[in-house]
Write a protein that binds this DNA or RNA. Structure first.
Length: 247
DNA sequence: CGTGTTTGACCAGCGC
DNA sequence: GCGCTGGTCAAACACG
């Protein structure tokens, strides 16, 4: 990130006066305007840098908390085997996590290495393939009672002995969302670019929101962050007007 | 020919 | 015991 900061100013294309007739034509005015824009640019860079720093710290805190929670849950499951058979609530038709507001609730058995992920896809995309870095072999497909969309069953084929399975099904409420349920822990090193959720490192409850960073690898998370920041800045009329790229 | 997908059959668990 | 449902198997098939 540090390298890109210094390039920001140098790589900026020179101002095209013909394209910006509202800019001052006088040479001294132009110099003053240039200085002002540079100052503004510096200020914005500082703000952006501060925002990124805060975001980075926040991200580190989130990952640290997730790691602690995961460790705590694993310790609990190991120290108290009965916990594994204690019931927890899982939403049926309703995708929310507030128990009393769900239309249909069912009791399920707590499994320490079950991870649920929601992945946003195109509505028109008919297949149930979710790219998470691992290699999966489809071994079955079923239409379930509470959802008209078929559920696909996959086994991890990255290693022959890997016990991990996953189920992929479109959300009953929003067909553009794929609900992926990972079951088990991989017994082999992850391939490059495998997501945290697919690795089983983030437990069920923390991985349920669509398009959350937890569903991405760290690299793609940073890319996502940059894209979102760029998008936000591009939408900000005061920022675009300062740059002279606005409408 | 090897690998992956599709799909009907089969099995186990559960509620009645 | 019976029916329903979700999960798995395995033969047939498609594809490179």
């Amino acid at each position: 990130m540090a390298g890109s900061d210094s390039n920001f100013e140098e790589n900026s294309s020179p101002l095209d006066l013909n394209a910006h007739p509202h800019l001052p034509s006088n040479e001294s005015d132009l110099a003053a305007e240039l200085i002002r824009v540079k100052m503004e640019n510096k200020k914005l860079k500082g703000m952006l840098s501060m925002t990124l720093d805060r975001c980075s710290n926040l991200k580190n805190n989130v990952f640290e908390e997730l790691r602690k929670n995961n460790l705590r849950r694993e310790r609990e499951a190991e120290s108290n085997p009965l916990r594994n058979s204690s019931p927890v609530w899982e939403e049926g038709e309703c995708s929310c996590t507030v128990h009393h507001c769900c239309k249909k609730l069912r009791q399920i058995t707590y499994k320490p290495h079950v991870t649920r992920v929601h992945v946003k896809t195109k509505d028109s995309d008919p297949n149930l393939m979710v790219k998470d870095g691992f290699q999966w072999r489809k071994y079955g497909q079923k239409v379930t009672r509470d959802n008209p969309s078929p559920r696909a069953y996959f086994k991890c084929s990255f290693a022959p002995t890997c016990p991990v399975k996953k189920k992929v099904q479109r959300s009953a409420e929003d067909e553009s969302i794929l609900v992926v349920i990972y079951d088990g822990k991989h017994n082999h090193p992850p391939p490059f670019g495998a997501s945290n959720v697919a690795l089983g490192s983030i437990p069920d409850s923390e991985a349920s929101s669509p398009s959350q960073p937890t569903t991405q690898s760290l690299g793609s998370f940073q890319q996502l962050l940059v894209e979102q920041l760029a998008s936000l800045l591009a939408k900000d009329p005061s920022f675009t007007s300062q740059l002279g790229t606005g409408p």
